[in-house]
Design a protein around this nucleic acid. Structure first.
Lengths: 170, 170
DNA sequence: AGCATATGTCAGTGTTGTTGACATTCCAAG
DNA sequence: CTTGGAATGTCAACAACACTGACATATGCT
């Protein structure tokens, strides 16, 4: 585990894709790609008073309208103080509406206003355009592999959250 | 471009993997996976006075020993002030050594000390362990697709930086 | 009634990023 | 040799986003 070539070679099979060198390339690819992944929305947001955290909130509220604060907290994996700061500004600016729950009045259900939907569209369009191009260039098999690997590197909690969103989206 | 189903259907071919729904799932997969990607090193770093930026600096200095500050700046895509703060603490703590260039004495060439290499190992091992597991579970074809898509979503600059690193690693 | 849950809020702190301004060192062109 | 520009370092101020800890309020459940 210390020679830097631990996980490769000497295994009859074709495990060359598990070389430390290959892993490191995967790590660096992930690093560089994530920058591209966020670059377009970031550019749009930097002109406004919002940041990446607002984008994430708006994205998931749009994805699951009526979601509760607690649910959003779990998906985003941040503290309620951190989320609250973001939500407050979004509500003040009229992009998000917070409705008291009917069944359980402690809960707040979150919705995008028309204006909020407009922002979500704008950000999504920019991000999707890049991903669409990347997907198209890479082809369907590559995309399937991409998704498989990403799913395999999620934490358990994230994987279930991801699966729940995925299933609800049909 | 506004009906949310713009890029799918009506194209004789099998372009269902370019549906807005599929793109959105890819986006969410990327979001959740990146959290897993950084989770293990982040845990280690949180016990020390360092953060993710220190990890990145140490990673790339280890990757290309003797690299200049300017080169590192381009790879990391941050301002020199931001990088300088990180480098200063790493140098003060004896993890990184900065040597004045021979040919051009304005340049500083960066190297990891033994202690710095130890930290890099610790962080890399944690991160690689997860990626290795993900790669193994997904299999070589999926990994190839993963890399293809990631590369396709990089900015042009990042793609060349990535390629340069990749080639130098043989 | 009493405890737990869901949410909101205040105060403080840390990491990482940004701009802008300025100093130093040094190569290279005139 | 002087001057302009490149590479680097440093200082100050600030913003975004995360954290912890503490506390308040309203509500639900037993």
């Amino acid at each position: 585990m210390a020679d830097g070539r631990s996980s490769s070679a000497q295994s009859g099979e074709n495990l060359l894709f598990l070389t430390d060198e290959q892993l490191r390339q995967g790590i660096e690819a992930m690093f560089f790609a994530y920058r591209g992944f966020t670059a377009d929305p970031d550019r749009i947001l930097s002109d406004m008073a919002y940041g990446r955290a607002h984008h994430r909130a708006v994205h998931f509220i749009n994805r699951a309208p009526g979601t509760t604060v607690n649910n959003l907290l779990n998906i985003l994996g941040v503290t309620k103080q951190s989320l609250n700061r973001v939500l407050r500004t979004l509500i003040e600016d009229g992009l998000v509406e917070s409705k008291v729950g009917k069944a359980d009045k402690r809960e707040r259900h979150l919705f995008l206003t028309t204006e909020g939907q407009a922002l979500e569209q704008k950000l999504s369009d920019a991000q999707r355009a890049r991903i669409r191009m990347a997907f198209r260039d890479a082809g369907p098999e590559a995309v399937a592999g991409f998704r498989t690997v990403l799913e395999a590197m999620m934490d358990r909690d994230m994987r279930t959250a991801y699966a729940r969103l995925k299933d609800s989206g049909t």
